[in-house]
Design a protein around this nucleic acid. Sequence first.
DNA 1: TCAAGTATACTTGTATACAAGTATTATAAC
DNA 2: GTTATAATACTTGTATACAAGTATACTTGA
Lengths: 243, 243
Amino acid sequence: MAESGEFLYPAKWLSKASTGYRVTCELRMRIISGGIGSGTILSENKLAADFAVSRSPVREALKILASENIIRLERMGAVVIGLTEKEIAEIYDVRLLIETFVFERLVRMDINELVKELSKILEMMKVAIKYSDADEFSYQDVLFHETIICTINHSYILMIWNNLKPVMESFILLSMRMRFKEKYDDFTRIVNNHELYIEAIKTKDRALMIESLHQNFDDVQGKVEDLWMSQQILSKRIEQEKD
Amino acid sequence: MAESGEFLYPAKWLSKASTGYRVTCELRMRIISGGIGSGTILSENKLAADFAVSRSPVREALKILASENIIRLERMGAVVIGLTEKEIAEIYDVRLLIETFVFERLVRMDINELVKELSKILEMMKVAIKYSDADEFSYQDVLFHETIICTINHSYILMIWNNLKPVMESFILLSMRMRFKEKYDDFTRIVNNHELYIEAIKTKDRALMIESLHQNFDDVQGKVEDLWMSQQILSKRIEQEKD
DNA sequence: TCAAGTATACTTGTATACAAGTATTATAAC
DNA sequence: GTTATAATACTTGTATACAAGTATACTTGA
């Protein structure tokens, strides 16, 4: 699949991944970053040629991305939907919905283990910030919320999370990479916010939890254009490759 | 794919469907009905042989069923999870979650068109009852809720529905088929319940809507063993086929 | 009888081949 | 110039082939 420089998805995270999974992740990143713009029609054959793989893994990728709602499979070709502000707001609607549900269950559980685990993740996040590792930070950020959700052992809530996760992960990844360059002090706010979340769980304070979730939402609101801007750089690089 | 008698999924609904989709639907029905029991290990090759198709559509089916949480893809073979009471309760948790969310949006919208559409569907349901058409009734039942959800135009809520829908559809299908034989008077209650739901939307009465949803939930609770019982008949038929 | 190693029969993931169908384009007739 | 028809170049969906890896079972050695 050619060199690593041209890929958006962290190569580390794909160490033992199949070709299909690699294509899925990379395609997702290009769509969410805007590198492949909304409305673009994707062809299995072209994609297979671009990635230098056969149609099998590409088909797999398209099916997955369609179930994630960032492309739409039509009779001829897959149409890119992408992430506009509307979609991002919708994702946060769902996050609010499921994390609130999870919280209601948590308050009736023993959460000592969870709090310990979350504290660990938070420490990891701090280290990631210290070493300006945007990818690691994103990973821990997503893991933080996943850990909370997994605690209640609800397979269908987990199903929703699993459908949402890849798109969120990609979005957070791109967003964090950008901010590590430009808005470094954002991170202290994000960490504070997660501390608030842990505190909410510890004290079983529902209002505090909702507040910190909303704040988390505000943190990424209106960042789509920024993502587009950072994408300009990438687009140019891709153009150069084609020459 | 052999004769039609041995299939659980309505052939009508597969008129122009691909082989992959047919396998998906049929496999789902067999798993949910209990014909393929929880814990069973499915092999792509065996399934392909059973359905007399190649591995491609079978692979597709397994991927989809895994995303629906009724099987689990492992290194060697797919393990059947199935639907226990726990899973059914979880599905209704999610339904309650999303339909409540939808309702909150509905109350701020013009719902004249929706109410008209729902009334039409309800009439269809009545006709289906009159002619003892369990499959048609199930179709309209699922359509009823889908129509409500689609109204708010929320792509990620719709995504959740789309993930939930196939399993629910199969479950309702099996449940209704059985009740058409044994518990015919259940249907007046179900219709009444849907009338209540329409009323709740019309009057924007949140409490009434929740009540009718809960009632809808109670309607299918504790029906899993029944499903198992009705499955015994099928199991025997399959055994006979093998001889 | 038991342990170790090898052979075999499975497994998945990917590539390729083929068939059926659909858009597009080019050509021919008016 | 315009329309209708035919040829071509695409599309997806399915089948098949192949490679790499894993579990099982059997054989060989003590």
